[in-house]
Design a protein around this nucleic acid. Sequence first.
DNA 1: GGGCCTTTGAAGCCT
DNA 2: AGGCTTCAAAGGCCC
Length: 524
Amino acid sequence: MPQLNGGDGDDLGANDELIAFKDEGEQEEKRNVSAGRDLDDVKSSLVNESETNSSSDSEADRRSKPGPDLESRARHSQLFEEALRRRQDGGLFQPSPYVGYPFFMIPDLGNICNPYLANGALTQSARTYLPFQWPLLDVPGRAAIRDSATPTHLSNNVPVVQHPHMTHLHPLLSYSPEAFSPQRASPGFSPDAGMSRTPHAACYPVSPGGMAQLTHPLGWLQGQPMYPIAGGFSPAALAMNASMSSFSPRLVPTSQSSIPHPAIVSTGSEAGSLPDGQQEREEEKKPHIKKPLNAFMLYMREERPKVVAQCKVKESATINQILGQRWHSLTKEEQAKYYELARKERLLHSKLYPGWSARDNYLKRPRVPPEETPHTHTLLTQTAHTHPRSHLTQPHTVSHLTHTHLSQASPASSLDSPATPTTALASPGAPQLQPLSLTTKPHRTAHPLSRNAVTPGPSTPSSSCDTPTSSPLMTSSRCSPPPPPPPLISQPFLVPPPTSAHQSAASSHGALTQPFSLRRANQL
DNA sequence: GGGCCTTTGAAGCCT
DNA sequence: AGGCTTCAAAGGCCC
């Protein structure tokens, strides 16, 4: 566990962070205990509640139970620790966010490797990135730069390379010191050389002072507009970037005009449906800011390589099933790490994008190829606000109203009291309700029609990881042949009848007995 | 080439 | 308030 608040406590670059985290600044061990205790408290309340109906599934009971579950958990914990050690030793795995969790608020860095900026070239999934990610920038034009293994000099000399190993770049989880080191800065960030391709670089907590010594990778772009702010990023975000950055504030773009960068273009579909209005055009250039990752997503991000390596499984659907059950096999303390990390992710996200709301990404994806005129676009947009679930008719273009608050957010209000509810979540007084349904959510049964008609069922202590059907827990460090179906008695997660709270949490994914594919079909 | 699958959690919208 | 839906990551698979 790293010192999340290492240094002088300015790693976040914001004092309110210290306020937000009541334990911030204390010893990490104490923080861990505190986080675990908080989580325990929250979970215990739920457990107590559920115990009124059934005590068989409480965490305490599970943990006190001898037998395969305990054994598998011990193995898993051993694996977990081993993985942590490996990462500390500079192994191939992505460094654990807790080993070197670089929880600092360096907006420039966060922007450079900003994982929230999606759409094409800058997304991890697209595996295309600029040598540095443009702050608050959405670069949808992936088609133009995709499959470019070598730097592609675009019209304004911004090299674009494709780098499958940089998918780990993340403002919180993994910064590559090599990518930012002065030694490598030149070849790595030079417009002529593109980015260092060193994969799996260890991450480290960067102190602002240390970063100040580095050559800003954007130096060659100083004076140029860096990204469009037409999307309505509040001056607060920019001010924060400037104030919190160890780099020159001049790098913070001040122009409201869009960048003529070739990579910073709207997607073809967006451009094709552009209405004539200038405002709409600007809205379509708005960057797509991704949601912050939740605890499980962070866990998956970290554990996925292990599962892939251990099980030789590459299908994400299968891996996710494994990880889902592994997640349930984690102890509260282990889960608490990820909840804490997710909480800080949300906090960082809310600071980077004070006006952002999950609503901004809501129903933005085109479900049906739009055949719309500007007139219908307007109508559909209005309809979408009235009936946002009617995604069949939802235009793929951005809504008119959802972003208006972004540009209206005042710097002071954004900084002092970010408008996003995530900040409220991160506030010390806000209860952490996330873990409530962790170990009580019943497993879904895969629909037989589903392509991946695997039926994970309740977690079992088995160590096989051939398929989630046999045993997804994968508590062993090796993949073993699928054992015979374990007796039901060995299932560690016998789910009690859900309480109202459980029901609510579990039902958030639809009917418990209804497979995802069916639910999806019903949605459509 | 793009959508689906699959997981959990956060947050949105709707009733 | 409660229930339901969407999105976040990921990569093989399928059409």
